[in-house]
Every structure is written in structure tokens, then in C-alpha cells.
């Protein structure tokens, strides 16, 4: 945990019956191929009952095709900004880190060529390969 405080409430924070029950986080998948997304949590004395509760809370209306039920205390959390959001320039790892508008303009001026229309070179036709994404 960092000085920001954990995103996860500490296990067993609840008083009273919280001492015997513990939180399990529930992740759910809506349809095949989707990512597992966090749905919420349930309190249970063990994993078996946690699965029953999760089914009741997060699968009653056929809104899920798969549930993952994870003991909260088994989740390893990393939220240290020194490791995940370091204040170093990492722009060389991203497409947006390469800005060459002015350099391209200079190169065209040197070669005597026009700026191609439609963003593609005039001599080469646009690729016809169909994208399977999106």
C-alpha cells in the first residue's frame, strides 16, 4: 500500500460478523470474448459459499456467462506511482511521441514534391487488405 491508500478496502475492516466473514471480489463476463470486469463483492465464510452468493447477486438475470470469485486478501495490488506513473519522459514508447510535421515539410521542400492528398503516397494505392478489427 502506498501513501495514497489502497483502492481495496482492507480485508476484515467490518467489525462484528466481519471477523468471521471475509470479502470476495466478483468479476463477471457478459459474453464470450469480453474481458472479465469487476462487478462487486460479497461477504462469505469460505470460497464455496462466496460462489453461491456471487451467483445470486451477479448472475440471477442471465446477465453473466462466467464469474470469477477471488478472495480479496489474495489480490496483490500495485499502485505505486513511482513504478506505474514515473515522472520520466516515456513518449518514445508511444506513437504520439513522434511529431515530424515540420521535418516532413522541410523534406518536401528539399525534394520538390507536393504533400500527398488523402494522407497516402500518390504512387502507391491504398492497401486493400480488409481489417478484421473493430
Amino acid at each position: 500500500m502506498t501513501e495514497h491508500g489502497s483502492y481495496l478496502p482492507p480485508a476484515g475492516e467490518s467489525a462484528g460478523d466481519g471477523a468471521l466473514l471475509e470479502p470476495f471480489e466478483v468479476f463477471r463476463q457478459e459474453k464470450e470474448g469480453d474481458a472479465m470486469r469487476h462487478g462487486g463483492s460479497v461477504m462469505a465464510p469460505d470460497g464455496e459459499l462466496a460462489v453461491h452468493y456471487a451467483r445470486e447477486m451477479y448472475g440471477r438475470r442471465q446477465e453473466s456467462i462466467r464469474l470469477w470469485v477471488v478472495r480479496r486478501s489474495d489480490i496483490r495490488e500495485l499502485d505505486d506511482p513511482d513504478l506505474l506513473q514515473p515522472p520520466l519522459d516515456r513518449s518514445f514508447k508511444k506513437p504520439g511521441g513522434y511529431v515530424m510535421r515540420d521535418k516532413l515539410a522541410a523534406a518536401r521542400e528539399r525534394s520538390g514534391q507536393e504533400k500527398p492528398s488523402g494522407g497516402r503516397p500518390r504512387s502507391a494505392p491504398p492497401p486493400t487488405r480488409k481489417s478484421h478489427e473493430g
Binding site: P9, S14, M43
Partner: peptide, 14 residues
């Protein structure tokens, strides 16, 4: 679901 949210804020369901 709501008692669950409240529990994490420090008061037991019971």
C-alpha cells in the same frame, strides 16, 4: 448489494 457497500465503510451488516 447496498449493505455490502456500507459494510466496507466500517459498520457490520448485523
Amino acid at each position: 448489494l447496498l449493505y455490502r457497500v456500507a459494510e466496507d465503510l466500517g459498520k457490520s451488516r448485523g
